[in-house]
Simulated scan of single mutants.
Amino acid sequence: MNSAPPPSSFDNDADFYEESRWQKLRRRIVEEPLIPLGCGLTVWALYEATKSMKSGDHAKTNRMFRRRIYAQGFTLLAMVAGSAYWEKDRKKRTEYNDLLEEKKKKDKRDAWIRELEARDDEDKAFAAMNKRLAEARSAEKKRLSEADARAVETKIQSDTTGIVRSVLEPGEGRRDSPLLNAAMKLWQAKSS
């Protein structure tokens, strides 16, 4: 047996679930026309009772007050009967409104999360850009320091051209040096 609730006549009517206050009032009057009728009869009875009091007709006044009580009773009965008759659709409407509110909250939360993710992506891109700039600056400083070091080294070399060099330093006549030849012979004698 199917446990699903029976379908409502308003299930496929989107206007039923999304309506303004005036649309709701009109729908309620169409759904339960006896309530406005009872209210109208009550107002009419009070109006007639007021007129008869001003004219001094006590019998008509009492009759109109009784009619007012009957009209109010009729209105109350119409309200109770209409409430019982439309109870299932009102429950469905309440469930739909709850679902709609939950969906709106979820959409709002999702939009907030998307905004946070976009901001996080921007922050990450900004941090990556700052990192690349810092690396470029340090590489530039390193290149400058290497260039400066080379410049200082060439300056030192140019200043020391007339200075005596070590025997082991590369330069002119290195192989012909008597000191170097003596050192090589000593080494070869030790290793053999």
Results as ranks from 00 to 15, higher is better:
Ser138Cys: 02
Arg90Tyr: 14
Ser55Ala: 14
Lys131Ala: 12
Leu76Cys: 07
Ala136Phe: 09
Lys106Trp: 11
Arg66Leu: 15
Trp112Tyr: 08
Tyr96Phe: 11
Ala134Asn: 03
Val80Cys: 02
Ala59Glu: 10
Gln72His: 07
Lys54Asn: 07
Val43Lys: 09
Ser138Leu: 11
Ala125Glu: 09
Glu135Ile: 13
Trp86Gln: 09
Ile35Lys: 04
Arg66Tyr: 14
Arg93His: 06
Arg132Glu: 02
Asp89Trp: 01
Ala78Gln: 01
Leu46Ser: 07
Lys60Ser: 14
Ala84Gln: 11
Ala139Leu: 15
Glu122Pro: 01
Ala134Trp: 02
Lys131Met: 09
Ile69Asp: 12
Lys106Thr: 11
Thr61Gln: 06
Thr61Gly: 03
Tyr47Asp: 13
Trp44Ser: 10
Lys91Met: 13
Phe65Ser: 03
Tyr96Pro: 00
Leu46Tyr: 03
Lys141Phe: 08
Leu77Ala: 09
Ala111Val: 00
Ala59Lys: 10
Lys54Pro: 00
His58Met: 15
Lys104His: 11
Ala125Leu: 11
Ser52Arg: 00
Met53His: 07
Lys104Gln: 05
Leu100Val: 07
Lys54Tyr: 05
Arg26Pro: 00
Asp98Gly: 08
Val80Met: 09
Glu117His: 08
Phe74Lys: 03
Asn62Gly: 04
Asn97Phe: 07
Ser55Phe: 06
Glu102Pro: 01
Leu77Arg: 06
Val80Ala: 08
Ile29His: 08
Leu100Ala: 15
Asn62Asp: 05
Ala127Trp: 12
Arg68Ile: 03
Leu37Gln: 05
Asn97Asp: 12
Ala81Pro: 01
Ala125Asp: 07
Ala45Gln: 00
Glu87Tyr: 10
Ala139Glu: 14
Val80Leu: 13
Ala71Arg: 00
Ala125Phe: 02
Asn130Glu: 10
Ala118Thr: 09
Leu25Pro: 01
